[in-house]
């Protein structure tokens, strides 16, 4: 049977863990093979799903529109960049007023600064305005997914092994992060 294209899964990652990620790679040398970002708890992501609050937006483009948006979850900030190649997402950012809850499906991308620090950001495929309940559900789901990855970090799954080798993560930090995010829901 002809080899079939399968869509990449969208991972649920908190901003803090996403910001800590810096290992970006491809599985093969083929120019069309997907780019992955490995996170400290061993999620190998090519696509992610975020529901968080838009706090700031700025058109940093010179000629054409190029939007930078800050989107905040209980653990930190995602940077979202959308320009002419993400027309639908850029249009949504241009139209919404902050603060607003947004559901974002996008691809992780990385940028290396001159001093070698790797910054992560998200290139959105689509963005939609959602309600507070949807945002809370995302926090619960993301906490669940994060805890599950932490529980499997000592398994022999290749992604977990690689994450441990590269990051030597102190997973209790991420466990605490997930827990705080959940507590945050209760206090609200």
């Amino acid at each position: 049977m002809a080899s079939q294209y399968t869509r990449e899964v969208s991972y649920r990652i908190f901003a803090q863990e996403f910001r800590d990620s810096n290992l970006s790679f491809k599985d093969s040398n083929d120019q069309y093979s997907p780019q992955y970002l490995l996170t400290p708890t061993g999620a190998k992501i090519n696509r992610m799903f975020i529901v968080a609050t838009l706090t700031e937006k700025e058109d940093i483009g010179t000629d054409a529109e190029y939007w930078r948006a800050r989107v905040v979850d209980p653990t930190g900030v995602f940077l979202i960049y959308a320009g002419q190649f993400q027309p639908e997402a850029a249009r949504v950012i241009a139209e919404v007023e902050s603060p607003q809850y947004l559901a974002i499906v996008g691809k992780p991308s990385t940028y290396q600064t001159e001093d070698g620090t790797i910054l992560t950001s998200v290139r959105p495929e689509n963005i939609h305005v959602v309600d507070a309940a949807t945002r809370d559900r995302w926090v619960v789901e993301t906490a669940q997914c994060t805890i599950e990855r932490i529980n499997n970090i000592d398994s022999n799954h290749p992604d977990a092994v690689r994450a441990k080798e590269h990051y030597h993560p102190d997973v209790s930090i991420y466990r605490k992060m997930a827990q705080d995010a959940l507590k945050d829901l209760n206090s609200a």
């Binding site: 309940a133 209790s172 466990r175 209760n186």
Partner: peptide
């Protein structure tokens, strides 16, 4: 489906309580 996020969150926190204490 609607998830009762508060209840879900509480359950998850309780499940986590033990390993976190152990870690500390």
């Amino acid at each position: 489906i609607e998830i009762d996020t508060i209840t879900e969150a509480c359950t998850l926190i309780q499940e986590m309580q033990y390993p976190i204490l152990q870690g500390e």
